[in-house]
Write a protein that binds this DNA or RNA. Structure first.
Lengths: 232, 232
DNA sequence: TTATTAAATGTCATTTTGACAAATAATAAT
DNA sequence: ATTATTATTTGTCAAAATGACATTTAATAA
């Protein structure tokens, strides 16, 4: 068997930046690293790419193994490959970002696994270049969410307009005018208004909406321009 | 020294999808592969990531070594890591796409190096998963060019509006209304009209323009929405 | 019955868009 | 010298989208 002679070989890992929304705040999922170096330090959910899997496969496997999460929105971010990013030996890491509804997995994550949610502004110090990954992922999330309806991935089946707006405000770290936001969302035709109201947040209650799945899929790649005066 | 025991190590390569514009058509730069397997077959410009360089560094080095190109627009596309994508041994490749003005490097590329330009629709069969890379790069180029003024990277210092429009039409594979295009471009404030005309293309001649470098840098991340009715 | 509070909705001026055709400048032809 | 040719350049207008702004409504609590 031929080989590419004399070329160096490296470890290849994946690291997942998992963003979640609990109905009020945008949060980041972290775990305590299970191996040396930096054992027990806060870290993104990561692992090595196995011999018979692609990085995408690895990301899905690692995510399932460490958090039980499966079938969630997962997108490649970029590769991190500075020669000295891992002090033990050279490891390139493929960053992925994931989006989930926190409440859907709350119990599972804290009981079975030892993953914890943090406000991004209150995250602990992370190992290696993971803080940079989080920063890049936030930027990309903002970018994509401004153009495509990916934030619905972070909401439960039934959600209210105030919740949706809060999510957009959290992601973009800005305040949005309720009237204009409501108009914009309506114009996409992606939402179906339900009879039921969520009365937990106010006396009047807010109507629940659900996603029009068909239109969601059809419009996923369309440019929707959700955010006014957007500057990245 | 500690090591991550038992984990497999892989080769890591970079492959560059180099797009060029000659004033009329959008083209793709290819070279003949210099090593087995698939030696002498048409290929993207690629090479292995060295022990002391990042993938970004490697892409720049490989590009310079194989084409002499230096200091050009280069952006990470994504990683390609299917286990069997290279028949010899497992190699992950980081794709990059680059943008250049063909005429600026024409002589250099064909004489010193043996790189050739192809219309994308008339490209030869490529090795491995390079055709997929080209397809993904085109898509990403379209996406970015719709929102950010990166296409100016493919034009000479002086260019005309008809040239600029042709470039946009090539990239998006569509026809654009001249009046609306001109209005949109003007409104960005990125162009400075010159006294001189290019008379090679018509009797009347077309005025040359140049980029307002300061505004270009300032607006590079702004959302400019160049393409009407855009669907990706 | 009234007060309270968050949710839902309406207006208007301005800007942007998309669709459409006529005028212009330079050279070539007569 | 006049006219024809051809690509370049520019203009209009109705429709849609945007941004800024405040009031009404529905339900519960007082």
């Amino acid at each position: 068997m031929i080989e590419y002679s004399g070329q160096p070989h490296y470890l290849v890992a994946v690291d997942c930046i998992v963003f979640g929304f609990d109905g009020e705040r945008l949060k980041l999922l972290l775990v305590k690293r299970g191996l040396e170096p930096e054992i027990n330090k806060w870290s993104l959910i990561g692992g090595f790419v196995g011999a018979n899997e692609s990085p995408d496969d690895a990301a899905n496997r690692v995510l399932k193994k460490n958090t039980g999460l499966e079938g969630i929105y997962l997108e490649q971010l970029q590769i991190y490959g500075e020669p000295d990013r891992d002090p033990i030996e050279r490891t390139l890491s493929v960053g992925y970002f994931a989006l989930i509804d926190i409440n859907k997995y709350q119990a599972q994550l804290s009981d079975e696994y030892h993953a914890e949610w943090f406000l991004i502004s209150e995250s602990p110090k992370l190992i290696f270049d993971h803080a940079q990954m989080v920063s890049d992922a936030r930027k990309k999330l903002r970018y994509k969410a401004a153009l495509h309806p990916i934030l619905f991935e972070m909401l439960p089946k039934k959600f209210t307009l105030p919740q949706l707006q809060m999510l957009f405000e959290e992601v973009n770290d800005t305040k949005i005018d309720t009237r204009n936001f409501s108009r914009k969302i309506s114009s996409t035709g992606l939402l179906i208004k339900l009879e039921e109201k969520d009365k937990s947040g106010s006396k009047k209650g807010a109507f629940y909406f659900k996603l029009d799945k068909k239109k969601y899929k059809a419009n996923f790649q369309a440019f929707l321009n959700f955010i006014p005066n957007l500057k990245i």
